[in-house]
């Protein structure tokens, strides 16, 4: 496969950045998207050029490090797939592919396609935890949890914090991420004591970071590699409302 890439190049946080066109030849359809970029980077290094910086770690779709906006869609058009699990067979030979970083003020570009997602860490620090002695893992049946609650909590807990929801949201909102973290804990018995204070602290931190508000467009859940459902946001809204009406 021969491809034309239009890649966002930005040498550092203060650089203005621009799109640069590259041609990549002899791409195997079995390569992952990141492997295709590796091929490009190897060539750039050999030519003495600066390789395209992008985040990645496990390349198994579970760590949440990778992520780029491919042809206008976070993680590309393949549903429920991280960039590392996206394969070149989904693209046509001779295609032009646009690659951009997540674009949001709270996610400043570090370099090229790498953005600083510390804002998510601070949202977690604000309340994404349970204050109970952890100790060793308890027996699975020591605290009974309804099957429905366990399933819904697990759906939310699959969030890998990649930031695709923010990237896709027309408002640059982090509602799906924050809601997933809130819902994950608020559906389980261990999360009950801090349920309302958690929702309040995390939503307020989300606002303080400069993320936009949710307008229920559903763009986030459509691109989420883990398919976090939109009703997590309803759960967050409900908890936040209760926290504020006390």
């Amino acid at each position: 496969m021969n491809l034309t890439l239009k890649v966002w190049r930005q040498s550092g946080p203060s650089d203005k950045g621009r799109m640069v066109t590259y041609h990549v030849e002899d791409v195997s359809p079995d390569m992952s998207f990141l492997e295709m970029l590796d091929v490009l980077n190897e060539r750039l290094i050999l030519e003495g050029d600066d390789p395209v910086a992008f985040d990645h770690d496990c390349r198994e779709g579970i760590c949440g490090m990778c992520g780029m906006v491919i042809n206008g869609v976070a993680h590309g058009e393949q549903r429920a797939t991280t960039t590392c699990q996206l394969h070149m067979r989904h693209f046509e030979d001779g295609a032009t592919i646009t690659i951009e970083p997540w674009r949001a003020a709270p996610f400043p570009v570090v370099k090229d396609l790498v953005v600083d997602r510390s804002a998510f860490d601070r949202i977690i620090q604000a309340g994404g935890f349970v204050s109970v002695p952890a100790g060793s893992a308890p027996d699975a049946h020591s605290i009974p949890v309804r099957k429905e609650d366990a399933d819904a909590a697990f759906d939310a807990a699959t969030c890998i914090g990649c930031g695709a929801c923010v990237a896709a949201c027309p408002n640059g909102s982090a509602s799906l991420f924050t809601a997933a973290k809130i819902t994950h804990l608020s559906l389980l018995p261990q999360g009950q004591p801090e349920r309302l204070s958690r929702a309040k602290a995390m939503v307020d931190q989300m606002d303080a970071e400069g993320f936009g508000g949710c307008t229920n467009t559903g763009e986030c859940t459509a691109v989420c590699p883990k398919g976090i459902p939109l009703d997590a946001i309803a759960q967050m809204n409900s908890d936040y409302l209760k926290a504020n009406s006390k």
Binding site: K6, W8, G17, M19, V69, N71, G72, V73, E77, T98, E100, R103, A104, A105, P106, A168, P170, N171, G172, S173, G210, F211, G212, G213, T215, T217, G218, E219, T221, A222, V223
Partner: peptide, 19 residues
């Protein structure tokens, strides 16, 4: 708030939610 949250616009952006 939304426009402050995305100061740099996408070169290409494709909506994924039908609406």
């Amino acid at each position: 708030r939304a426009s402050h949250a995305r100061p740099v616009k996408y070169v290409a952006k494709k909506s994924q939610a039908n609406g």
